[in-house]
């Protein structure tokens, strides 16, 4: 497994990286390298140049300010998993990050690289959609902010335009009475999500005032399970009500459910409600 020849540049800043992207058409950004390096080694990718943004300091770290959590794009999964702020105020993200790959992957892989790669089996895209995160991207036309819901457009496809770089992710911190969780049916080999369910539950007066559920792994891009959210809103968070709502997930999955040799489309459809139920149950427990 030897990669084809490429030029390597290490960018010291976002603007330098953007300049390099423009200068070398057909180049690729290198973040933590957990997806790009294997693609290179398998010779499934052959960029002219690899632009390393993994050491840009400004892109690292987690800060909480005024009810918003800002996560730099080059923050590693291990850092997400270890963050006490996230554990308290954005549990699903920390929980999902802790279950990505193995320690070596978590120590190198970054949230920005993961999200920009938009692998349908990744954990974080669904989590960001459920959390209604905002993604900051920088490019030749300056900065712009995208909703996570619109960012993921399909398998390995995002709203990032040519030469744009994802720099940060902003997530509203949980308010009182709010809780989130990520329930994952992990592939036994890859640890990618066969089914990944991110759930955010908001309670008020002992009832569910709002629920947000996003499904990943089994669909080309994360989908919001509006059918589930609708049924649960305004209900008591009893096991029966959660199960009833989770049962509605099929309606939101659309007709592009993925299947493979480990788990067929039909099987994934059959057990999706179970995983939604588990995600919601955990989120509801944290919301109390």
């Amino acid at each position: 497994m030897y990669a084809p020849e490429f030029d390597y540049y290490r960018a010291g800043s976002v603007s330098e990286a953007a300049g390099l992207l423009r200068k070398y058409p057909g180049s690729k950004l290198l973040a933590g390298g957990q997806s790009l390096i294997p693609l290179l080694k398998l010779r499934l990718a052959a960029p002219v140049a690899v632009i390393d943004i993994g050491r840009i300091r400004d892109l690292k770290g987690i800060t909480v300010k005024g009810g918003t959590i800002r996560v730099g794009a080059m923050t590693t999964h291990a850092e997400l998993a270890a963050s006490s702020e996230l554990a308290e105020q954005c549990h699903a993200l920390a929980q999902a990050a802790a279950g990505i790959g193995d320690p070596a992957v978590r120590n190198r892989g970054t949230i920005g690289g993961n999200v920009a790669h938009a692998d349908p089996a990744s954990d974080l895209p669904a989590v960001l959609v459920a959390l209604e995160a905002k993604l900051t991207v920088e490019g030749p036309d300056g900065k712009r902010t995208l909703d996570a819901g619109g960012f993921f457009q399909g398998m390995m496809t995002t709203a990032l335009k040519e030469h744009e770089i994802l720099t940060a992710i902003e997530i509203p911190a949980h308010s009182k009475g709010q809780g989130s969780a990520y329930a994952k049916f992990a592939h036994p080999a890859s640890r990618y999500a066969v089914i990944g369910v991110a759930a955010v539950v908001t309670t008020s007066g002992g009832k569910c005032s709002a629920a947000r559920v996003a499904i990943g792994g089994m669909v080309p891009r994360p989908v919001r399970a509006a059918s589930v959210e609708r049924v649960l809103a305004g209900q008591e968070l009893s096991a029966e009500n959660i199960a009833k709502a989770a049962g509605q997930v099929t309606e939101s999955l659309g007709n592009e459910v993925l299947g493979d040799i480990f788990a067929s489309e039909q099987y994934r459809r059959s057990v999706a409600p179970v995983w939604v139920k588990r995600g919601l149950t955990q989120a509801a427990e944290r919301a109390r």
């Binding site: 080999a189 890859s190 990618y192 040799i261 480990f262």
Partner: peptide, 16 residues
């Protein structure tokens, strides 16, 4: 061979 890599061929893992 569809199970041609560690992505698809599931070897036992300690946490299971």
């Amino acid at each position: 061979l569809l199970t041609g890599s560690m992505l698809d061929y599931a070897l036992p893992r300690a946490d299971r």
